[in-house]
Design a protein around this nucleic acid. Structure first.
Lengths: 342, 342
DNA sequence: TCCTTTTATGGGAGCGCTCCCACGCAATAT
DNA sequence: ATATTGCGTGGGAGCGCTCCCATAAAAGGA
């Protein structure tokens, strides 16, 4: 059996209360006693029992990261790897323990989620892959556990962290207009996600600033997959765009393939700009110009926000992270190319 | 404030003890009372307080998954994604909660690990990325927490799950010999990992069965990276192998690039067999023949083993999972090609 | 019929901790 | 000198639960 605070106190010749004060860094402990207790702790390798501590304090030091359904597909996405790394790193820094909830389907979600939230086991929750009308979100507001969403939810009154999808897409528009393109096309991400919607609106608004219109035949809907990008690009080609903004790099990979097959040169015949910037520049030929979103930072920030909510700050708090234009080869802006570090 | 067992009892007109019996499925509860209590629980959405439960029972229902250092590099590897999915799925099935420990460096590891293990917070631990002389392993044996390693550790007396690296590499040898190759080469994975070592030994032994030798100039050392495979292949080319077994698909991607650049045709001029089988067949040209290891299953099994250890079964338990030869284009065995499902 | 066994239930104890209050003693103020 | 403050410390209470034991009621055996 492992040691208790009582034991530590006894070994140091003090009461469990005093030992507790030392551990929790409370005042009113004489330097002498403090040293003695610390020595005993060091020597014995004592660690307070987490369950007992949490039972009385109402805090567990544990946060949850929820990645709901479709995990099969989603997890291949480097976005989640980065996000998890960010969340994990921030949790480590703050002495928080991270629990991971990967729900394979709605049934699993419905079965496990209530227990997780109600058991008092978690101090707070980070929920990713925000969906429109997220069923979790509805449930969540009933409970009193602090929540931070990753990605803008369609409901308000929830704290969230998100990349500046709108602003990033505007940058894409500005960039393509600035390069002198006239027939600018768009491959949309699904607009049943707020990310897809924001990128669409941002791009259209960005073009509007320069009085450039986006005719319907230069707009195609993609599916967040490589194949989706491939098909959308084939569809657009008939209308001879001189440039295209593709709302995700994964789709851009498919689109580039479609272009290569059609014998259309990039960037000579068509300029291509993607969105995400999570894969290495070597992943495509030519190297893809894209808007890089800070996935790991998103994870870190979500933990920071959550920490604030847990310690009583009242929400909702919103944190929008900047997105960078990473100029590589596919947009043809080599003259003004910015060296990138990766 | 949330409900307690006491409240449930009161609402159902029984004592907290009886309510507890219902929840834990103990005998000696009249059907009538049981129904009443269940109804109250259903109606109120009551969930037992995890901390209190764990304090008295000594069980938390929480297991930890440790992925030590080098996470930056490792996490890009689809292996970890699959493994985590397997672990998570099995944990969900068994009503276990999964905590994830991603240690970015040894300092973080040293700082966090003891607390994790000693706090009584975890019922057991799954440790991945087994290293030779794993520093965690040394510490672990001092503690009394059940452990399962993923990947064969170099120390004995620890339970572990591993893919049959040795057997898989033997299959590779058999396959290449069977295709009539004479100058068979090898690109090794780093032999400071047991996986690298086992694949090396398995391949050499597999060749030995057919009295085929592996001369030193047909052996090159890789680094588990694409670049490592690229360089190793360039080195081998001077010695004109007619086939090569590359101990990881990542290295194989680099090797294929080296071959393409050198104008060596695959599989006409050289047959190539990889190892891992975690990326889609479209990832390389030509599609790579490889040995597929069951990464998700490895995760599931590690949870199952751990569950057995937690419930008192004494270890060490060892589970070696089979590895499948997936024949695609790069080995030239199209005549006997097996249709694969992906 | 009475006595023994079984079944159903309630209450006490205690898991290891943190918080609060009370107490003793030294330092300061009157 | 005594009264007042403060600090350092110990012990009680209690967080919500499970386990054990005691007890009451029901069922069985003689």
């Amino acid at each position: 059996m492992s040691l208790t605070l009582q034991d530590i106190g006894r070994l140091a010749g003090v009461s469990r209360s005093t030992a507790s004060r030392v551990i929790n860094g409370h005042a009113s402990v004489s330097p002498d006693v403090r040293r003695r207790v610390e020595e005993v702790i060091e020597r014995t390798g004592y660690t307070p029992n987490a369950a007992a501590r949490s039972l009385v304090s109402g805090r567990s030091g544990v946060i949850g990261l929820v990645i709901p359904n479709n995990v099969h597909a989603l997890f291949e996405d480097p976005y989640y790897s980065r996000l998890i790394q960010g969340v994990s790193g921030a949790a480590n820094d703050s002495d928080l323990t991270l629990t991971l909830f990967l729900f394979q389907n709605e049934a699993e979600e419905a079965k496990l989620y209530p227990r997780v939230v109600t058991s008092g086991f978690l101090d707070g929750l980070i929920i990713t892959a925000t969906r429109m009308n997220d069923p979790l979100l509805a449930r969540v507001s009933d409970d009193d556990i602090p929540i931070v969403m990753v990605g803008r939810p369609d409901t308000s009154s929830v704290s969230y962290v998100d990349a500046d999808n709108h602003g990033g897409a505007m940058q894409a528009a500005t960039h393509l207009v600035g390069l002198g393109h006239k027939r600018i096309a768009l491959i949309e991400a699904p607009v049943n996600t707020t990310a897809g919607l924001d990128r669409l609106n941002g791009f259209v608004e960005g073009l509007a600033v320069y009085d450039v219109a986006l005719p319907p035949n230069l707009r195609a809907k993609g599916k967040f997959t490589e194949l989706g990008g491939y098909e959308a690009m084939q569809q657009l080609l008939a209308h001879r765009p001189d440039s295209v903004f593709i709302a995700s790099d994964t789709m851009a990979v498919g689109a580039l393939r479609a272009l290569a097959e059609a014998g259309v040169r990039v960037p000579e015949d068509i300029a291509v700009v993607g969105f995400d910037g999570l894969t290495p520049s070597t992943a495509t030929t030519p190297a893809l110009t894209t808007l890089r979103q800070p996935a790991a930072l998103t994870g870190r920030r979500s933990v920071e926000l959550l920490t604030r909510l847990v310690s009583g700050e009242d929400g909702p708090v919103i944190d929008i992270l900047p997105v960078d234009l990473v100029i590589r080869e596919s947009c043809g802006a080599t003259a003004t190319a910015i060296r990138e570090s990766v």
